[in-house]
């Protein structure tokens, strides 16, 4: 059974500045939670609190109801913590895995079996006898995770485990990690700043910005309805525009219609968050937001069109992803813009 986590009224300050403030956060047993946020949001600080390595200045982090500051050695040993930089020890890969098992008093044969099984699970069993510090970054991180897995933790904390890997290696890495975790009841909390990975692998998502929890929800919900502009940015929304909601629910940007409509928000100022593929380009004179094409370049399976929206008194840069079968606009061309309802969010 995976461990349950409760974070309550936690405050952490560094050099007189508050870097983390979490009023309440629950992680359910065997849940895979992702913590998403920009650099410096306090993600690692939070993870270190969960790992019981650090203690909060105020408040409590509880693992299965026990505050981390009262956690005994045996209870701490149920927690695995994979740091962003793989801190392997200056010995062979196998001994790196066996050492924590030795600390736990496991007999020699059992240590070896568990270590090899964990290496196997992360596809690095062939590296067992190599000096750990001579491995590549990706190999080291796999060994690092295997080491935590070998101890069979009830709670596994991972801090940007795929940092430093190229995108393809990341994809393989996450697939391997998911497979390695598949058959065990372990609660995981992973920190990342990449929304696509969080969206793909998380049961639930926490968005942390400036040391505060901005939104906790399923990937689907957060992606569809980011709580505010900061969350929208973290979730990878490409375009953010200041807007206004009319009493009948129409969303206007610079008094131009956008094709968007909201019933939940009520009249007043708002923000339109739109993915690049939500920005639809129509010929000039067909209504919508007036814009000028700044440039067109090929993308992966689409065209990237850079636009300047002509709002009263300012030009706002926008990016649009256009299907390759649609006719490409020419640079300098005046166009009109509509937003796709399903790929945009209207926020306050």
């Amino acid at each position: 059974m995976g461990a349950e986590l409760t974070v309550r009224d936690v405050r952490v300050a560094r050099g007189g500045r508050q870097v983390l403030a979490v009023d309440h956060l629950d992680v359910k047993a065997s849940e895979h939670l992702f913590v998403l946020g920009p650099n410096g949001a306090g993600k690692t600080t939070l993870l270190r609190l969960l790992s019981a390595v650090d203690r909060p200045d105020r408040g409590d982090v509880e693992v299965d109801g026990v505050p981390t500051r009262r956690l005994g050695l045996e209870e701490r040993r149920r927690i695995g913590y994979v740091t962003q930089r793989p801190a392997l020890l200056g010995t062979t890969v196998l001994r790196n895995l066996e050492l924590p098992l030795r600390w736990r008093g496991l007999p020699r044969e059992r240590r070896r079996a568990l270590a090899l099984a964990a290496l196997e699970r992360l596809q690095v069993a062939h590296l067992a006898q190599r000096p750990a510090l001579r491995l590549s970054g990706g190999e080291q991180q796999r060994v690092n995770i295997a080491r935590s897995l070998a101890c069979d933790p009830d709670l596994l904390l991972l801090d940007e485990p795929a940092a430093g890997l190229d995108p393809e290696a990341r994809a393989i890495f996450f697939t391997d990690l998911e497979r390695a975790l598949a058959d065990r009841a372990v609660t995981t909390v992973q920190v990342t700043h990449r929304p696509e990975e969080a969206l793909r692998h998380a049961d639930r998502l926490v968005v942390l910005v400036d040391g505060a929890v901005r939104q906790v929800d399923t990937p689907e919900m957060i992606s569809r309805m980011p709580a505010d502009a900061a969350v929208a940015t973290v979730m990878g929304y490409d375009n953010l525009l200041t807007a206004r909601v009319t009493p009948d629910g129409a969303v206007l940007v610079g008094e131009w219609p956008t094709g968007l409509h909201t019933d939940d928000l009520g009249p007043g100022p708002a923000v339109v968050a739109a993915f690049a593929n939500a920005v639809r380009i129509v010929p000039s004179g067909r209504g919508g937001l007036p814009a000028v094409v700044r440039g067109v370049s090929p993308g992966r399976g689409h065209r990237v069109v850079l636009l300047d929206a002509r709002l009263p008194g300012e030009r706002v840069p926008l990016v649009s992803h256009l299907g390759v079968d649609a006719p490409a606009p020419a640079p300098g061309e005046a166009v009109c813009i509509w937003f796709d309802d399903a790929l945009s969010a209207v926020l306050r």
Partner: peptide
């Protein structure tokens, strides 16, 4: 590495280990 002691603790080492 400055994180080594914390890391060793998180791997389950007691103070002496």
């Amino acid at each position: 590495p400055p994180e080594l002691p914390g890391h060793l603790r998180s791997l389950g080492a007691n103070r002496w280990q």
